[in-house]
Structure formats: structure tokens, C-alpha cells
Design a protein around this nucleic acid. Structure first.
Length: 354
DNA sequence: TGTCCACGTCT
DNA sequence: AAGACGTGGAC
């Protein structure tokens, strides 16, 4: 007969011996500073602890209280955020401080009120309530997701399984101990995720949960959580024609007002399709009759697809058919006066060098 | 040296 | 409601 020690007990026992010392963290037995918690949690969004530490210290030196932050200029706040990335966090943080200062001056103790503040979403609201106010919320971030997926050996892929993982994570603090030590419990989960249950090479041998962790027992911890391989972006193919006259002007035309690179200038080009078409067909499509020589291939990555374009250069006289009526001749130096995509600049620069 | 990617919030 | 945000770390 075996009795199962609750997860929360194992986690808290470990935390009492192995917790990290962090500048925003309250010393054991002391009341946390909710402003420190809020500031650190905003900084920790998408950013690692080691990166955040010097920024947090600098902010606390300059803005010891939330009121100081609210009264500071946005410029100063932005300047101090420099290098930390995701700058909308800094703008939102500043607005958040101002809203709190304007209201009660106290950071809300209520989930909905917190979420209504700029820059605070599900995760951060739960983190502030648990760590800052010792309320039994489970803040589910990527670390907690990973710990949960391993603890229960969840093999379905993210992001599909995200809601299930969040629901499971929220069962971890059941029991009197974790309810009473909500802040410690939340931070304990983060510490385990960061120092033991790492994304790669998890240290199951020294993990307080190893004997109850399904993934560890099945020796599959290192492959969890499984992520959906994001759909490969399709590749499209096109042919573009580089045509220069004796005044060093380049033949360009305007793309349609809708769709990719709407309304920008382009080299006369075939439609981008699933595979390369022949140069003869591209000539017919564009209406730019003549002899061409292939000069290279340009690769360009859009959000939704990768584009490969074969570049051809005109090596004979040009004869335009009616299809080509809208074409215009532009000198490459004048190009800046027209809307022209990076892709086209790339292609023109390449062609000009040849 | 570049390329890929993290996974919280906002729009 | 998919995509943008921006840095640093992994390969």
C-alpha cells in the first residue's frame, strides 16, 4: 500500500530549500511588494530572468514606487526600457501606473480589475494575485505548461492542448498548504520550470516530482511538450523581366491595388504560381516581346509564403504588345519617389549589378 | 553568420 | 482571431 503525497507538498518542500533569490522576491516571512511583482512580471513576459534583473534594479532605483513611475515622463520610461524589447510593454506599463495612481493608488486585488489594466492579461493578473497578494491563482506561462505536460505525460501537441494544460495546471494547488502559501506555490512552479524541468535536458534525477511525474517515469520528459509543427509555408514561383533602355531607365509597372504589395511598382512579372512557367509564357503574359537571358534567381520570404523569382534580362530590341500599355520607364535613381517594395529593390539592385 | 524561434498581450 | 511585436539563445 502506498500513499500519494500531494503535488503541492512536494513542490513547496523543494521550494523551501531551493528557491532562487531574485530582487523582486519578498524574503521568506515578509510581505511582498505588489509593485515589485507587477513590474517584474511585465518585464518577464517573453524575457528571461537573467536579462530582466538589471532592468528591474534600474527601474526600482529611478522609480521606487508605482507613483514615481506614473509621474515619470513616457520618454524616460522608454529610454530606460531600451534593450529589453517589446516596447509596447513599456508604454502599457506607464499607462497602467497612471491609471492605478489616478484610481486608488493601490494595485487592484481583483482579477477582472487587473485584467482591465493595459499590459495585464490572464497570466500577469494571476501572477500578481498569487505572488503579490497570496491569493490562490495559478499563473500559467510556458514553464508551467511544460511542467504540467510532463507531470501528466500529455502527448497531444501545443497549441491545441493549451486549454487542457491550463485546466490541469489549475488543479496543482489543491489542498490547504498551497492555498495558504499561494505566492510561494506560484514561484515554486516557476523555479522548478526554470531550473529543473527545463525545455531541454530536464534534471529529472533531482526533481522533487520525479516519482509522481508520468513523463519522468516513462522516460519521455525530454520530448514533452510536443509542439505542432507549423504548416510549412508554400513556395511560389515567378519570372521577372529586367528591361533597360538606352537612357538607363527601367521598365516598371504598377501592381494591382489589392493583394500582395498592392499598388507598388514592379518589374514586369508573371503571376506567382505553384511552379515555374516558361520564359516564353512569361513574355506572353507581360507583353514585353524580345530575346532574354536568365541572370539569376531571387528568394524572398513573405509572411505567408516564400517566393522564388527567376530574373531575365532583355538582350534585344523590345516590342511591347497591348498587354503592356501601363508600363512606365523610370531611372533607378528616381525609384525612391515611387512606392517600391523591398523585393523589387532587391531584384533591381541585383539586375543592375550584373 | 545566419536562421529559427520562444508563447504574453494587443489589435 | 491570426499576426505583430523584438531580443537573445540554440543550432
Amino acid at each position: 500500500m502506498s500513499t500519494q503525497i500531494p503535488y503541492a507538498t512536494l513542490i513547496l518542500r523543494w521550494y523551501d530549500r531551493h528557491q532562487r533569490i531574485l530582487p523582486w522576491r519578498a524574503k521568506t516571512g515578509t510581505i511582498p511588494n505588489p509593485y515589485y511583482v507587477l513590474l517584474s512580471e511585465i518585464m518577464l513576459q517573453q524575457t528571461q530572468v537573467a536579462t530582466v534583473i538589471p532592468y528591474f534594479n534600474k527601474f526600482i532605483e529611478n522609480f521606487p514606487t508605482l507613483n514615481d513611475l506614473a509621474e515619470a515622463s513616457l520618454e524616460k520610461v522608454m529610454a530606460m526600457w531600451t534593450g529589453l524589447g517589446y516596447y509596447s510593454r513599456a508604454r502599457n506599463l506607464h499607462r497602467c501606473a497612471q491609471e492605478v495612481a489616478k484610481q486608488s493608488g493601490e494595485i487592484p486585488k481583483d482579477y477582472q480589475a487587473l485584467k482591465a489594466l493595459p499590459g495585464i492579461g490572464d497570466y500577469t493578473a494571476a501572477a500578481i494575485l498569487s505572488i503579490g497578494y497570496n491569493q490562490p491563482y495559478v499563473a500559467v506561462d510556458g514553464n508551467v505548461e511544460r511542467v504540467t505536460a510532463r507531470l501528466f505525460a500529455i502527448q497531444e501537441p501545443l497549441p491545441m492542448i493549451k486549454p487542457t494544460l491550463a485546466a490541469l495546471a489549475k488543479t496543482l494547488n489543491e489542498g490547504r498548504e498551497a492555498q495558504e502559501r499561494a505566492g510561494d506555490f506560484a514561484q515554486a512552479l516557476f523555479d522548478i520550470g526554470a531550473t529543473i524541468c527545463k525545455p531541454k535536458n530536464p534534471s529529472c534525477l533531482i526533481c522533487p516530482l520525479s516519482e509522481v511525474c508520468k513523463a519522468s517515469l516513462e522516460k519521455i520528459a525530454d520530448i514533452l511538450p510536443i509542439r505542432q509543427r507549423k504548416a510549412e509555408k508554400p513556395t511560389k514561383y515567378g519570372i521577372s523581366l529586367f528591361i533597360e533602355n538606352d537612357k538607363n531607365q527601367i521598365l516598371l509597372r504598377k501592381r494591382p491595388e489589392k493583394g500582395v504589395l498592392a499598388g507598388t511598382l514592379e518589374l514586369p512579372s508573371s503571376i506567382w504560381s505553384e511552379q515555374y512557367i516558361s520564359i516564353e509564357q512569361a513574355i506572353k503574359e507581360t507583353g514585353c516581346l524580345g530575346q532574354y537571358q536568365e541572370i539569376g534567381e531571387i528568394k524572398h520570404v513573405f509572411t505567408h509564403f516564400t517566393l522564388k523569382v527567376k530574373l531575365f534580362k532583355l538582350v534585344s530590341d523590345l516590342k511591347l504588345t497591348q498587354v503592356a500599355q501601363d508600363n512606365m520607364w523610370i531611372h533607378s535613381d528616381e525609384l525612391n519617389h515611387y512606392p517600391c517594395s523591398t523585393l523589387m529593390k532587391k531584384m533591381i539592385a541585383y539586375s543592375t549589378k550584373i
